[in-house]
Design a protein around this nucleic acid. Sequence first.
DNA 1: AGAATTACCTGGCAGC
DNA 2: TGCTGCCAGGTAATTC
Length: 301
Amino acid sequence: MPELPEVETVKRGLTPAMEGTRITRLELRRGDLRFPFPDAFADRVSGRTIVSLGRRAKYLLVDLDDGNTLISHLGMSGSFRIEEGRIEEGAASGVPGEFHHARSKDEKHDHVVFHLQAASGPRRVVYNDPRRFGFMDMVGRADLAAHPFFRDLGPEPTGNELGAAYLAERFRDKAQPLKSALLDQKNIAGLGNIYVCEALWRAHLSPIRAAGTLVTATGRPKAQLGLLVASIRDVIADAIAAGGSSLRDHIQTDGSLGYFQHSFSVYDRESQACRTPGCGGTVARIVQAGRSTFYCATCQK
DNA sequence: AGAATTACCTGGCAGC
DNA sequence: TGCTGCCAGGTAATTC
């Protein structure tokens, strides 16, 4: 499921295929994803040139040459696919310059198609989303930070803004479990169920533990909070690195960019041995706020 | 106000 | 075999 590292990987994979190209047409194959598309979406995007791609939290950002930014969220099943067009040679069926590409099996969930004009010829970037939890919107670049999706987002886990002192301020006196506090995008942007479990495991902290217990009575971060921050940074950096290394293979096979399987230390490892050296515990699965949490009660306190 | 719960959606899989 | 029902998860809306 796309969390921050997966979205970052998608951004990096799409950048060479999209940046600098002209969107000859934005094709919407239905009126909505999770939410309706913005008014006149296709008309406003068609004809524009893509200036650059970016990311904030789990949102993919496509900067257009008219000052607008197209916002795309992959939900949990969204993915992009790159299809290079070919000009059919010497065939009556082929209109010169027209896009020809083998149809994919799963095309009933191809909801949005970016028809691009690249230097090498026609190209399509196809957004596929079986569960339609994803959504798209568009906003002027200057208004991006004030957009409801972004207004309340906390800092990126990869940036300098996230530190023990910052989290101490956010967690102070909070009885909320660490799992919920880390999942809250207002505290840190971009963490999802998987990487919260992984970060807590790395920091040897229990997901059930109250967030406020990592802060001293005077509001200063305890050492464990510093370890948690380091664990979050590390797990995200490692996942991005793993995504980058799998990116090449991923595009080569079928052009898709999206959710790919990493190897996890605790997530989805119920009843299996804890991987903390010398721990000897067993990974448990509990439900918090309606979501699965995986952790080791032996080494996570 | 802030926290917890539910809705949204469909593919995949366990169980009968 | 074919059906039912449940589970996955990010965010918004709703409820507490």
